[in-house]
């Protein structure tokens, strides 16, 4: 039974909110989340930072029956070192990741990427795990975790499993996450001594999704080049990377830029056609490679 006071409140919110009607569960434990997901499956959506979900609701692009708010679950938040891994809780805010000295030291690529994510207000709410679950192909963090060979921890009532970033991103907004699962944490291999990281992107306005971006990580074991904004998910540029395998020189940069056509076949979007994106990807590759050379 609604009290009269709450009825008044409800009526007022209906004046301003235009999302379709949905039920709301404020979860206090993962077990509660698992139960709700198991029961409602694809009719439920998890509310973390809400920076993509809430606009989608208000535009009626997404019409879930139930929102499961995981914000009260403290266990999903935090950054710590666990041996050779840096563990980032899925609910950790972008701003917290960006300000973390641990991340700056142990995962410098992510540290470099954070300021490119939207705007401060969005970084204050948006979460690390939420960005990966959303899997926007033009977003920064999916490219970073792929470049870093991170491992995502997924959990449901059925149990827990670890999925590598390489296996996680499947297609446009499609991931390995099952309808009853939630991302709990991300393990990022700690950058060894001598690692060089470069994160570059081109956006029309600061904070926009990038036209093209590149997360580049040079380690002893090799060079990882992951482009974003150039396909339906982050794309690893293997041919370009191979062209630079023997060490970065001006000639090899040109060869890598040429090889990029084998790695990327960017679809056009509103801001740039495919040819423009490939050109810009080559420019970024050149800039990142020269920066790695200088680092």
């Amino acid at each position: 039974m609604l009290t009269p006071a709450r009825e008044t409140r409800r009526a007022r919110w209906e004046d301003v909110l235009k999302a379709p009607s949905f039920a709301y569960l404020r979860a206090s434990s993962l077990a509660q989340v698992f139960d709700a997901l198991a029961e409602h499956g694809e009719d439920a959506r998890i509310l973390a930072g809400g920076q993509s979900l809430v606009p989608a609701l208000n535009m009626r692009l997404s019409e879930p029956r139930l929102l499961i708010d995981i914000n009260p679950i403290a266990a999903l938040t935090g950054i710590e070192r666990r041996g050779g891994m840096l563990r980032i809780g899925a609910l950790t805010r972008h701003s917290e990741v960006g300000a973390s000295p641990l991340v700056a030291r142990l995962a410098p690529l992510i540290h470099q990427a954070i300021p490119h994510i939207a705007h401060p207000a969005i970084r204050n709410r948006g979460t690390f795990g939420g960005s990966l679950a959303q899997a926007d192909p033009a977003a920064e963090l999916p490219a970073c975790v792929l470049a870093l060979d991170a491992v995502l921890h997924l959990a449901s009532r059925r149990g827990e499993r670890a999925v590598s970033a390489r296996d996680f991103f499947r297609a446009l907004y499609e991931t390995a996450l099952a309808p009853d699962e939630v991302i709990t944490a991300i393990d990022v291999p700690v950058a060894p001594q001598g690692t060089r990281s470069v994160f570059v992107e081109l956006a029309r306005r600061r904070g926009d999704y990038a036209l093209v971006g590149l997360a580049a990580e040079a380690r002893e074991v090799g060079l990882r080049l992951v482009f974003f904004g150039v396909g339906n998910k982050p794309v690893e540029a293997g041919a370009a990377s191979a062209a630079l395998a023997a060490g970065i020189t001006a000639e090899r940069i040109a060869a890598a830029q040429a090889a990029l056509a084998r790695d990327l076949d960017p679809p056009g979007d509103l801001q740039a056609d495919g040819a423009t994106k490939l050109h810009l990807a080559r420019v970024l590759l050149g800039r990142a490679a020269r920066a790695l050379m200088a680092a």
């Binding site: 029309r204 600061r206 904070g207 999704y209 509103l270």
Partner: peptide, 27 residues
């Protein structure tokens, strides 16, 4: 920045503030 992008069928392709670029302070 600003352009209402229309396709040949007369459909607006960028009718949101994410896709229609208004000038922002940083630029």
């Amino acid at each position: 920045f600003e352009e209402c992008l229309y396709d040949a069928a007369g459909q607006l392709r960028n009718g949101t503030l994410a896709d229609y670029l208004v000038p922002m302070a940083a630029e």
